[in-house]
Amino acid sequence: MTDGPMTDGLTTGVPTTGVPILRFEDVNRDFTTPGGWFARRRVLRAVNAVTLDVPAGRVTGVVGESGCGKSTLARLALGLIKPTDGRVSFEGEDLATARRARLRQLRARMQMVFQDPYSSIDPRMTIGDAVLEPFVVQGIRLTGAARAAKAEALLGMVGLDPSLARNHPHHLSGGQKQRVGIARALALEPRLVVLDEPTASLDVSIQAQIVALLEALKARLDLTYLFISHDLALVRYFCDRIVVMYLGAVVEILPSPAAPIRHPYTRALLDSAFVPDPTRRQTLARATGEIPSAFDLPPGCVYAPRCPLADETCRRIRPQLDRSAHPVACHHPLDRAGAGS
């Protein structure tokens, strides 16, 4: 790939590998249900006091159950929604206060691949128009021949036949559409790509192909990924660093996929994964009980109602993420549980 046209003037301060490209600083995001004549307005805290760095050139995974706020985190990362409190910054610039024109420039450098490939392409657009739309939006004029060449290059990059350019999305399979989604996201040669469960709505065999494509593209284009998923096994395979979220809060950050698990919730999440080998299956069902309503969070640890290790302290005082190399928000982390009580 050649240098992207939009990288001009923005190349200053490009972080090298390991330096945070994206920062969340004490970010909260609330959603308010509309009040009516008889219904009180209710506030749901989707993302709760998240502080997180996404290092450049790495793959940071975010895992958690549905409704844990991971998709909200993805949208906050790209400035698609604004934080209620706190600051989200990309390459040092606050996304919430960036001016419209500046935000457009920044968006050329941070892109998203969406969960549902079926609805992420306008049904009235041809595939060629869809992959070239990023240039139209960014005001980059391409002439007829350059358009065709660019569309062909982008489709080729994600392993699609360039002849698909004339087709409409409904002629494509889910896997092909997700490749189109990836081509659109990479068209402007971004630095950061947020992958919001890019394989969740695909067949298992197709999932593996998409993950392989994402790995190959990352190596080739020097990308930083923020990979959102509910599949801890996939995240452990794909990511360098794993953020575990529960009810909007970060409960553990695994510095490497192989790091020993410290939070009981991460343990439960891993145990609940399906193990194909029956001799290795465990019959543990650790995550029992109710998930507290995000409208009405308990005062103590949000995981306490389901946690086998929870005691009175857990129910009263909310644990904070510690500042170690392997941060965990737990009063009884697993590596200390045996020695402690």
Binding site: L80, L103, R104, F114, S119, I121, D122, Q138
Partner: peptide, 17 residues
């Protein structure tokens, strides 16, 4: 509410587009 609208906003598109 369609995803492709959000996706287009994510590309940097303005209201007119």
């Amino acid at each position: 509410g369609e995803t492709y609208i959000e996706a287009t906003v994510g590309l940097g598109a303005g209201h007119a587009h």
